[in-house]
Design a binder for these strands. Sequence first.
DNA 1: GATGAATGAGCTTTCATTCAT
DNA 2: AATGAATGAAAGCTCATTCAT
Lengths: 188, 188, 188, 188
Amino acid sequence: MARPRSEDKRNAILAATTDLVAEQGLGAATAEIAKRAGVPHGSVFTYFGTKSELLNAVYLELKTELINTVSAAMPAGDDTRLQLHHLWVSWTHWGASNPSKRRVLAQLSVSDQITELSRKAAYEGAGSSLALMRRASANGALRDAPLQYVGALVETSVATTTDFMIRDPAQADAFCKFGFEAVWRALS
Amino acid sequence: MARPRSEDKRNAILAATTDLVAEQGLGAATAEIAKRAGVPHGSVFTYFGTKSELLNAVYLELKTELINTVSAAMPAGDDTRLQLHHLWVSWTHWGASNPSKRRVLAQLSVSDQITELSRKAAYEGAGSSLALMRRASANGALRDAPLQYVGALVETSVATTTDFMIRDPAQADAFCKFGFEAVWRALS
Amino acid sequence: MARPRSEDKRNAILAATTDLVAEQGLGAATAEIAKRAGVPHGSVFTYFGTKSELLNAVYLELKTELINTVSAAMPAGDDTRLQLHHLWVSWTHWGASNPSKRRVLAQLSVSDQITELSRKAAYEGAGSSLALMRRASANGALRDAPLQYVGALVETSVATTTDFMIRDPAQADAFCKFGFEAVWRALS
Amino acid sequence: MARPRSEDKRNAILAATTDLVAEQGLGAATAEIAKRAGVPHGSVFTYFGTKSELLNAVYLELKTELINTVSAAMPAGDDTRLQLHHLWVSWTHWGASNPSKRRVLAQLSVSDQITELSRKAAYEGAGSSLALMRRASANGALRDAPLQYVGALVETSVATTTDFMIRDPAQADAFCKFGFEAVWRALS
DNA sequence: GATGAATGAGCTTTCATTCAT
DNA sequence: AATGAATGAAAGCTCATTCAT
């Protein structure tokens, strides 16, 4: 019967956190986040309990958004190279067009704030992408390597490529192409 | 400012910083670092001026140590694959046997504490390694990609591989081998 | 304000408060109390208005329970020593078997949360016990001392004795006996 | 060689803490304490580490002052009653003339902030007073009771008596006399 | 140069109470 | 009446840097 929690407020806090962490790093103050989100400081803790939980929520949200983007418009059929190309292009372009989000995800990934639970949830969400990587690498040098390792290699390659795309937008497409060819050869 | 008195103190501070940053992240307090190094708190600032300069010094020291390790015992001659293999193995093994240093380097690399100057100095120190990568990729998919991009791709592949080697030491050699084959194919 | 609906809820809140204050002191959060009582946070204020009123209610409830316990089975007749002994034994044993309640009462008694009104009400409820103490001290060193002072001396002696009984249960009966003899001599 | 810690500052913080805790209870804010002491907030933690350590230091200081007061001018010889009387009078008068300190000591004693270590140190400092109580009770009802229990009974009797002396200063001497007679009878 | 006390802005989190639903 | 989200003023404590000794 009481006032329900506001999805808008929750989203405003998540967005403000992404913004501020991109600008100031993980040390961004919760008070500042609240101000940016237009909510009272206390509300951050009503919605997320601790700063750490807030950061985990941001991590999962960004991962989910990324996964959805990459999955969208995935070509059907069995052309593995085409599909991996789609994954590569959509992934790198998501990062290049969302540099804040990309930066925050990078910071969170190496931080010790993200719990094993969050990492596992993110990993599981990426199931279909991983299955694609497995198909792509089924006959290559990594055919016997753990899928998680293959996924990690592709992910860091995406990250590196995205960085260069952001840094030198005029060559963004070239980097994207170089990266895909390199990764395709590494896997196939 | 006159030349600091004791090289020992300087090194003790650098080592303590590496230790503590590995344990607690970049937020490690300078007072704590001083205590771990067995020097007075004030000396940290006598020797390094600011915490930021201290972190840059750690970054350069670790990069230098890594470069020296990788350069040592490099096979002479013109067998590029053999040389790249040497680079790969010594690099990943350095990380796997120095997890603290590897962890600190990873944290510093993504942080905004490291100045462009430090990054450039590290890049230049890696000249011969980069030359080797250029040779290895001279006829492959990345032949027209900027050398810096090639280097970054190899570096993140090393980092990822090292993480898996540390996490699952029983399979360390397998990961090292998988990684090398993948990178070799990506380049050549 | 209309009469609150549920006596059960009221009692649940009082019991939860006793529990939590025993565990965490007077700083126990009302939200925590509500959770422990299994009622919504708001109900605490519906039933008690403020935290301070809640604490006063707990104080009075415990005092009342204590007085009832001590009065129960009081030997009739005019054997003052026997009656004081009954008071002493039932009082100390109530404390020893209800350490949480005893602890909370002690904390509330020295706090500045309890109003003069509550203290007065408690004092008046203890009328028959005080009358007994007056009889016991009618011919002793405290014959001319204010009854309230005599009561306070006995009360703190009970508290001290109870503490020792709780701390060393194997000697509980011995402490109870020592204390009674000492108090009897002080009064008579 | 660095600046030595200032005994004055330390004492100012202790005194300010006593003042404020007497006024506001143990919840007195460290920032407020610092302001009252005329030192920056941070200095409270330079000198005492945590609020809890500060409170323990206050406890020990007050206990020590009390013990010194009670020991001073203690009549020599073997007149136990005279000596106990001296103890009683100086103890109650210290409390009556230092109501703030007495109040703080009472609050600290029942709080859970005081460590076992502090309690033990205070207990040991009271050795000669306890020896006197043992002598006074050597042939009485408490002859076989643990000395610690006897001491606790006397202490709470002092506290109670002091309270009445403070509340009704015109009768202070009367309360002091009543209390002594009662305690003497309880022990002897 | 060496030392560690001094500093105060800034941090995350808690909380009693109110009030929209 | 019932509910729990909303609120913002504290709270204790940390910290890089300075500077008296």
